[in-house]
């Protein structure tokens, strides 16, 4: 079992970026909105996670201007990121299936 909490955040970030490149604030907002407020990403976890993913070349970063004319650092998935996302999504499915079974059993 991989380090699940950190792995979960990575998975959420990668999944968010699969749709389109986005900046940190956008990613946090997206996760919050899509999960209908169930998941809230702390900035204190988000930024180390983003930079760690960038460092391991799963995502790449570049400065761009938003629709509102503000400079922001945009992240996009790299090919390696795509692959990692597939794997992580699979793992997550297995994990949640397993956890669900155990919970049902109890």
């Amino acid at each position: 079992m991989p380090d699940s909490l950190q792995g979960t955040l990575d998975l959420l970030i990668l999944k968010t970026l699969q749709a389109e490149p986005n900046h940190g604030f956008g990613i946090a907002l997206h996760i919050q909105n899509v999960s209908e407020g169930l998941l809230r990403v702390e900035e204190g976890s988000l930024y180390p996670a983003l930079h760690r993913l960038a460092r391991s070349k799963l995502i790449s970063a570049s400065w761009k201007v938003t629709e509102n004319g503000r400079r922001a650092r945009y992240y996009r998935l790299t090919p390696a990121g795509h692959k990692q996302l597939e794997k992580a999504a699979e793992n997550w499915a297995d994990l949640s299936k397993g956890v669900a079974k155990i919970l049902r059993f109890a």
């Binding site: 900046h23 940190g24 604030f25 930024y47 930079h51 938003t66 503000r70 400079r71 922001a72």
Partner: peptide, 13 residues
């Protein structure tokens, strides 16, 4: 980079 990134995050919020 990091400082500016966080600043832009704050402004957007």
């Amino acid at each position: 980079d990091l400082r500016e990134e966080m600043e832009s995050h704050l402004q957007m919020r």
